[in-house]
Design a protein around this nucleic acid. Structure first.
Lengths: 69, 69
DNA sequence: ACTTTACGTCAAGGTAACTTTACACTTTTT
DNA sequence: AAAAAGTGTAAAGTTACCTTGACGTAAAGT
């Protein structure tokens, strides 16, 4: 799962801290998601997409679980 | 957070059990998500959207952060 | 009537997402 | 040069997601 968070965040002029505050999560959460440590919850993914005025699919690039069944 | 899971699932002719098997999750998980007990993880949301050949935004309707039930 | 299929609840337990706090490094600003 | 802003790591704790298993009900097939 790749994500365009760092680019989008910079485009919108947010620091990690301000973005975290805007979304109501911790800075650690932003860092961890940007670094791919784990996936955001679906609500947080929606909030992120809304913040950057786009879709979840545009922010997060899901490459598939493993192989298709 | 509403979702169109039951309708989409029926449209594609899946029982809860077969859908769960296809996605590699338990039937409980499908039930809980359909009933709105909790939100799916982002990867699972992607898998669901892919299964129903649409977008996450079409399957799940997010109404904002502060929502009860 | 009985078995199967489908949907649902409840409960105990594990793991992943998220939190808080603290510390370290680099770059920018004063 | 010192402070401030921005990014990063790590540890320990809480909560949300997901699991397995048992059980109940009702509809549809033998």
């Amino acid at each position: 799962m790749k994500n365009r968070l760092p680019e989008l965040r910079k485009t919108f002029g947010y620091s990690q801290e301000r973005l975290a505050a805007k979304l109501g999560v911790s800075r650690q959460t932003i860092i961890s998601i940007e670094k791919g440590k784990y996936f955001p919850s679906l609500p947080l993914a929606f909030e992120l997409a809304a913040t950057f005025e786009t879709t979840i699919e545009h922010v997060f690039i899901y490459e598939g679980k493993k192989e298709e069944e």
